[in-house]
């Protein structure tokens, strides 16, 4: 069939594969590399905490009153709290719950928000109007206040705190994806798919959602850090994790009363939150560049 053609183009050389360029981006951009290293370290700590922590039992909450309020030393690098628990162990053991809660909050929020936003943006009309008014109602409450209401209704524990955070987080994803979907809807390739006769449900997931995933992934990564902070705040005011759970927010709260005598309790817990937020922010920023299919090769 191709015999009639005078100009069969030869296969032009293939540009470098994305994986190759991911490595290159990381090596070029120090901050991105720092973000990746920190996040990998956090995940490793979350997995290996029971083996890394010098006193895993104390990390989980077992008191050891004989060693209460010890300043940082070789035996206890981060000191001990008023119940004599090794702070380093507490913080290491707190990594896993912090990341688990935060990742599940973001996952639930995205799972609700992304499809709703895509439908609203692609379909438009009254569906769009209705969904957007609902998100506005949710967004007009400060997230922490909304979470407090949910926790007050369901009772303070970690699961309810997570649920509360997911409830206040999904509208952001819905609005983000809606904006993307509205501009994608006008792009020629969507018009092309419509002209071919592709059903709108398929267009929605194959063209609209897939093409709006870059900002969602970036936002979700940054949010993993932000939710750690929010969950910490809930725990700090007593509406999240309950003692003796190894929760960073709780630790900051527990150390608050002795901030001037045992500064290390709140400080190291707060630093853990800070490092986590920073790590996911850096990673999110570098993902933005890496995930763009065109930018990837420059």
């Amino acid at each position: 069939m191709a015999h009639v053609l005078i100009d069969p183009p030869a296969a032009s050389p293939l540009p470098p594969t994305p994986r190759h360029s991911l490595l290159r981006t990381l090596l070029r951009d120090r901050l991105a590399l720092l973000g990746v290293v920190l996040v990998v370290a956090l995940v490793l700590v979350a997995i290996l905490a029971p083996w890394l922590a010098p006193y895993p039992g104390e990390g989980r909450g077992t008191a050891n009153v004989d060693a209460a309020d010890l300043a940082p030393s070789a035996a206890h690098p981060f000191g001990t709290d008023e119940l004599g628990r090794d702070m380093l162990s507490r913080i290491l053991m707190g990594t896993r719950p912090a990341l688990l809660i935060s990742i599940s909050v973001v996952a639930v929020a995205a799972l609700i928000g992304v499809p709703l936003g895509a439908i609203a943006g692609y379909r438009g009309g009254w569906i769009d109007e209705a969904l957007m008014r609902v998100t506005e109602v949710f967004q007009s409450f400060p997230p922490l206040l909304l979470a407090m209401v949910v926790v007050a209704l369901l009772g303070p524990d970690l699961k309810n705190a997570a649920l509360a955070l997911a409830v206040s987080w999904w509208p952001w994803y819905a609005r983000l994806v809606r904006g993307e979907a509205r501009s994608l809807r006008e792009r020629p390739f969507v018009a092309a798919a419509e002209a071919i006769g592709v059903p709108s449900r398929t267009i929605l997931h194959r063209h609209i959602i897939k093409n709006s995933m870059t900002p969602v992934l970036v936002q979700a990564t940054v949010d993993v850090g932000t939710v750690v902070l929010a969950a910490g705040s809930l725990a700090f005011i007593g509406l999240g994790a309950q003692p003796p759970a190894p929760d960073w927010g709780l630790m900051v709260a527990e150390g608050r009363s002795q901030l001037f005598t045992s500064w290390w309790v709140s400080t190291f817990a707060g630093l853990a939150i800070f490092v986590t937020v920073l790590a996911f922010n850096l990673l999110g920023d570098s993902l933005r560049d890496i995930l763009d299919p065109r930018k990837a090769e420059r």
Partner: peptide
């Protein structure tokens, strides 16, 4: 069949050549 004006924009940037060609075949 329909052929569009802007050849680059009329293809989904995240779909490979074979996925793009498969689309009408899957539908029809």
């Amino acid at each position: 069949g329909m052929v569009f004006q802007n050849p680059v924009m009329a293809l989904d940037p995240r779909m490979t050549v074979e996925e793009s060609i498969a689309e009408p075949l899957r539908v029809h």
